[in-house]
Design a protein around this nucleic acid. Structure first.
Length: 258
DNA sequence: ATGGTGGGTTACCCA
């Protein structure tokens, strides 16, 4: 069973990429971030033709998350206790039935703009509330995967130039501690169970030829619960869509579970 | 040196 996550930076623009990638990789579940579409504009017909059920929580212009799945989804959650946030950044859904049912939580974490800004403070507060939500979800749903654009590079080995990024937004110590606090609830960063080395990134700035020079960050993650970890067969990042015409600045990350 | 690119909308926008 393949589960993937991709910040598409406008599903309207990137729908052909999603179609192409899904035809090539056949994911069973795909979480999308930054769809930037109001729900009434969501392209569910095109995605149904690809074989997916769709759950989505969108808004015009900014943010927006969706989960595509081969099987019907239930128990959707779009808001979290304590977060009075109109931005559509969270979508939880249960895929499948019985013992193999899987809880998917799709996050588009607040970017935070710059260390010390109001948006940065909001990011840290947002992560605190999301952590409490995840703590509760983990109790109810042992087979849990939390994925998305975390807008945090977990460690220096996830950063192309750690010294240049030292204590900047996406890499600062308080952000990493907030992420650690989530992981310590009982998750594993799936990618790091299979690959230890640096140089593997999921996002490259559009500017200054950053992708060509591999000046990236690994900020798109799939966290798996302990129960799911025992079923994990692989975890990877697919750089190829970044080479396609008019790409997202992020690429898909994925796991394979038994 | 505050650039540069690419979404979105037509903005003191967001990444």
């Amino acid at each position: 069973m393949k589960i993937a996550s991709w910040n598409v930076n406008s599903l309207n623009v990137r729908l052909p990429h999603v179609q192409r990638w899904c035809e090539e990789h056949r994911p069973d579940v795909l979480s999308l971030q930054e769809t930037k579409l109001a729900d009434e504009k969501f392209p569910h017909e095109a995605l149904r033709e690809l074989g997916f059920e769709c759950a989505f929580s969108g808004q015009k212009s900014y943010n927006g998350v969706a989960i595509l799945a081969r099987e019907p989804m239930r128990d959707l959650v779009k808001d979290v206790d304590g977060l009075d946030d109109p931005a559509r950044r969270i979508l939880a859904a249960t895929v499948g039935e019985g013992a193999t049912a899987l809880r998917i939580i799709n996050l588009y974490v607040v970017n935070g703009q710059s260390v010390g800004s109001d948006k940065y403070a909001h990011k840290l507060k947002w992560l605190t509330h999301v952590r409490e939500f995840l703590r509760g979800q983990l109790v109810i749903h042992p087979n849990l995967a939390v994925m998305g654009d975390f807008n945090i590079a977990p460690e220096d080995r996830d950063v192309h130039d750690p010294e240049a990024w030292r204590e900047l937004v996406l890499c600062s110590t308080p952000e990493r501690e907030a992420l650690d606090g989530i992981v310590e609830l009982g998750f594993s960063d799936s990618f790091r169970l299979f690959s230890e080395e640096s140089g593997h990134y999921s996002w490259w700035d559009y500017r200054q030829g950053a992708f060509r020079r591999n000046m990236g960050l690994r900020i798109d993650l799939i966290l798996v619960s302990a129960a799911l970890r025992t079923r994990l067969k692989s975890a990877s990042i697919d750089r190829t869509p970044r080479t396609w015409e008019r790409p997202s600045d992020h690429v898909p990350v994925m796991i394979d579970i038994s």
